[in-house]
Design a protein around this nucleic acid. Structure first.
Length: 484
RNA sequence: GCCUCAGUAGCUCAGCUGGUUAGAGCGGCGGACUGUUAAUCCGUAGGUCAUAGGUUCAAGUCCUAUCUGAGGCGCCA
């Protein structure tokens, strides 16, 4: 079984293979004229044409060569007589590895809606679009590890089950092995978590950052890359209940080093995909172009997918402070014309419509906004010194905003001063006893450090141009959805 | 959680202001043809019009509720 030649290897290096007898295995994308199989084995965007001699072939076998059937073909590789491809395999033997009953099979050889395919997640990877997306997703994951490895970072596995609910990143999923119908209770009637598996309440992690800081303060440069969970009932095209997050954390970095890292890192991921997945990108680019042909002009993107990616790699990200952003927004046309639904006021968080204006209209490229009001950001972000012309206290936080999907990265320089940190925790009602170890990091050998979280699926979304985040993760978990 | 829109054949959709037996393309099945490239041609089957109520002489069409999906917003990555 293992002696097969991959379609990609044949299509990309057929010179040395012509005249040889090869075995290929894969799924039938099309069967034309009772003679031509377009065979795809997932290794490539493209198909290998397998030519069948239907006069010689057993009729039972011939009948089973159908859309998305799995076949094994052995024969000689020759130059193709037809115009659509350079080489083809003249099959001497055909074996059906897995037939597909088309009366029951839901997919069709035509464009189908993303929503429909989402319900058929066990089959959707067989389509061109999804196979392209998932090959690229792999490529980005690889590029993440490569970038950090090449730059001296260590991959740290932070826990998925956490005993702290003070991470401040949103609603959490409870982890327990209690019988939820009748959990043990204390004499007062409360659920008695001391009898639970971990002898305390535990949750699925919303961030590995606090633990990553432990790593940074020993290994210098670390990153995490793992699943992350949010129990928020977010119904949008850019939120998942289970997603993958990348969190570098670096000792001796300030907010500016952090921004440099974020920008360089994003560009390196995009660059890697432009270099190694051009066939996939071209396919996705054309897909979007076709889709946009039916849309009114003002809704179309002004650049194609590949063009956008090149543009992001070749240009500096715009860097502004939150205060500058507020001033810009207040001077903007949509603000003056009353087009914004939400007001722009120093101290209030920027809304999606405001970010979109800055990224898509004003600067037309990724924007890094920093120095947000302390009141709207997490307790661990480093308090800035008072600044001129800034009406309130700010923290050294930064958000990287991308066109189309908004916030891709959120990060900050961390508060390393024990007294300031404790003050902030008190203000924001973060219990010290749960984060005693986090405080001790400041007490013993602390140092300035910084880091950020990058939503992996959002980056995959940006690079593939997919409109909905549910279509860049194999098995999306969202409110009301945990099938497959 | 909020707002808007949608749900008609396996899929994509048409069905005008309520009015006879609900249509098309694709796909399926049967057949023809065979160097095709979304192969082509002929034939054929397939629908409790999301669900439950209601208005009306009459509901796919109007109203209400529920469910599902999409888009936008909030929360964020």
């Amino acid at each position: 079984m293992s002696k097969r030649t991959e379609v990609k290897a044949i299509l990309e290096g057929y010179e040395g293979l012509i005249g040889q007898e090869l075995t290929v295995m894969g799924w039938v994308r099309a069967f034309r004229s009772n003679r031509f199989i377009a065979l795809n084995d997932g290794t490539s965007m493209n198909t290998l044409q397998v030519v069948v001699d239907f006069e010689q072939l057993d009729e039972e076998v011939l009948k089973q060569i159908s859309f998305h059937a799995c076949v094994k073909a052995t024969g000689k590789l020759v130059e193709s007589q037809g115009a659509g491809q350079d080489v083809e395999l003249l099959a001497e033997q055909i074996e059906i590895l897995g037939a597909t009953n088309l009366e029951e099979y839901p997919l069709q050889p035509k464009q189908q809606s993303m929503e429909f395919l989402r319900e058929k997640a066990h089959f959707r990877m067989r389509t061109n679009t999804f196979s392209a997306v998932f090959r690229i997703r792999h490529g980005i994951a690889y590029a993440v590890h490569k970038y950090f490895n090449d730059n001296g970072y260590f991959y740290l596995h932070t826990p998925i089950i956490t005993g702290s609910d003070a991470e401040g990143a949103g609603e959490m999923f409870r982890v327990t092995n209690f019988d939820i119908d009748k959990p043990p209770r204390t004499e007062e009637g409360a659920v008695d978590f001391e009898q639970d598996f971990f002898e305390k309440p535990t949750n699925l992690t919303v961030s590995g950052q606090l633990q990553a800081e432990i790593g940074a303060l020993a290994l210098g440069k670390v990153y995490t890359f793992g699943p992350t969970f949010r129990a928020e009932k977010s119904n949008t095209s850019r939120h998942l209940a289970e997603f993958w997050m990348i969190e570098p954390e670096v000792a001796f970095y300030d907010i500016f080093d952090n921004m440099d890292l974020a920008e360089d890192f994003c560009k390196s991921l995009i660059h890697h995909i432009l270099e190694h997945y051009s066939a996939e990108l071209e396919f996705l680019d054309q897909r979007i172009e076709k889709m946009e042909r039916n849309m009114p002009k003002e809704q179309r993107r002004n650049m194609g997918l590949i063009e956008t990616l090149r543009f992001v790699v070749d240009n500096e990200f715009e860097r502004i402070t939150y205060t500058e952003a507020v001033n810009l927004l207040r001077k903007s046309k949509p603000y003056k014309k009353g087009k914004f639904e939400y007001g722009v006021e120093w101290g209030k968080d920027l809304q999606a419509e405001h970010e979109r204006y800055l990224v898509e209209k004003k600067f037309k490229k990724p924007v890094i906004v920093r120095d947000y009001p302390a009141s709207i950001k997490a307790f661990y972000m480093r308090m800035n010194d008072e600044q001129e012309n800034v009406p309130g206290k700010t923290v050294a936080a930064m958000d990287v905003l991308f066109p189309g999907i908004g916030e891709v990265i959120g990060g900050s320089q961390r508060e390393e001063r024990l007294d300031v940190l404790r003050e902030r925790m008190a203000e924001m009602d973060v219990p010290e006893e749960e984060l005693w170890w986090y405080l001790e990091l400041r007490k013993f050998g602390g140092c300035p450090h910084a880091g950020f979280g990058l939503g992996f699926e959002r980056m995959v979304q940006f690079i593939t141009g997919m409109g909905n985040i549910r279509d860049v993760i194999a098995f999306p978990r969202t409110p009301g959805n945990a099938e497959f």
